[in-house]
Design a binder for these strands. Structure first.
Lengths: 207, 207
DNA sequence: ATGCCATTGACCCACGTGGTCAACAGAAAT
DNA sequence: ATTTCTGTTGACCACGTGGGTCAATGGCAT
């Protein structure tokens, strides 16, 4: 399907992929412009359609590319023998932050995919998205030792509260970064804050 | 400024306002179409511009309209003598849910305003948004009795965790509703779940 | 010199946009 | 009965942009 594109030199592939991801991440499917993508990638319009056929197929390709990239990296760096829930979360946050540094637009892109509701692509993606979250959830919780948690409250709710807390925390930091003039993310600050919330949550939710 | 519009019969005002809110809520500022708004409102294009001058002014008007509506209702229904943090939150959730029933598109609209980053309106709204959140935060925390919380962990973090939990909870329920075929929101379920999380959080965070 | 394939970018057509304005309806005033 | 005035209409405009095409080019291998 994308053999023509895949047999390109890697540097050019990356240029195109990055340009496309950036554009889709910033504007969403409908408003993303192929003209902008080719301009940013430094190739001609015809070439882009020569490789991907049309806009929709390009979008599909990018989604696959990003998800495999992320999951591969995640599986590589996370130690699944670790049974402590908090340590598991800490690892996930670290991986996420590293990738936020190396592939800044990548997360914004998949986040955008999950918010996307353009009729063009909604139907075909809804299944994909659900499967993906399901698989990730299963993997994430695999082998966790739940015996450390206090038993006088519903465990599932505790797990949700913890997950939500760290999601919101990273949202908040990301938002602060977006507001700041240089758009720089203070990774050390995130790490520090994460540790502080760790302490609160372990003290309150562990036995 | 909008005197012409304001002296209309209320029913017509509402038709126009609702149509406009719906359109902006669904598509965001840029993609929202004045053509769609007039079609939905059952008026002519010229009339809309006769009332509001242009698209941007209409957007401003709607934002003011919505925020005053929400805050008025909130101040009316919330008892500020109540000093318990959880009860305060419960009241806020209830008000929000009631309004979600009576003005379904309203929240989506302001949420959209806060996400909006169209250059056309970004600059002028950033101040407004910040002020608004600041004021609301202050009002919300006014007079709360913090002595009930455990003292071995950082209070501010606890408050954030609690707030985040309920935000994420309502996000989740809203998302489930969007996925379901009839798009109906199960208010009783939200209330029930809210109460369950209440129990967990009070048990873990109160003395 | 020939064939081949990657690559170009001017071009196409369709669409939708915010905004305008001459025309109109009909009630009130003359 | 005629004029005035106000609220209202919707065809119309100028414009930008979009995805997608294709004849033409360039350069490499034969």
């Amino acid at each position: 399907m994308f053999s023509k594109f895949l047999s390109l030199e890697k540097e050019k592939q990356d240029r195109i992929i990055n340009a496309a991801i950036k554009e889709f991440a910033q504007k969403g499917y409908d408003k993303a412009s192929t003209n902008e993508i080719v301009k940013e990638a430094g190739i001609s319009k015809g070439l882009l359609f020569h490789y991907f056929g049309n806009k929709k197929q390009m979008y599909f390709f990018l989604f696959d590319y990003c998800t495999t990239l992320i999951t591969d990296e995640y599986y590589l760096k996370v130690n699944f023998k670790e049974t402590d829930f908090f340590t598991r979360i800490r690892q996930a946050i670290i991986v996420k932050m590293e990738m936020l540094g190396t592939h800044p637009d990548l997360f914004k892109f998949i986040q955008e995919v999950f918010l996307e509701d353009s009729p063009e692509i909604k139907v075909e993606f809804d299944k994909k998205k659900q499967e993906m979250t399901h698989i990730n959830m299963e993997k994430f919780y695999e082998g966790i030792d739940y015996s450390k948690f206090r038993e006088d409250v519903d465990l599932k709710k505790i797990l949700k509260i913890i997950t939500w807390t760290f999601e919101k925390l990273s949202d908040e930091v990301l938002n602060q970064a977006k507001m700041s003039p240089n758009h720089e993310i203070d990774y050390q600050k995130i790490l520090d804050e994460t540790e502080e919330y760790f302490q609160v949550l372990t003290r309150c939710f562990y036995k």
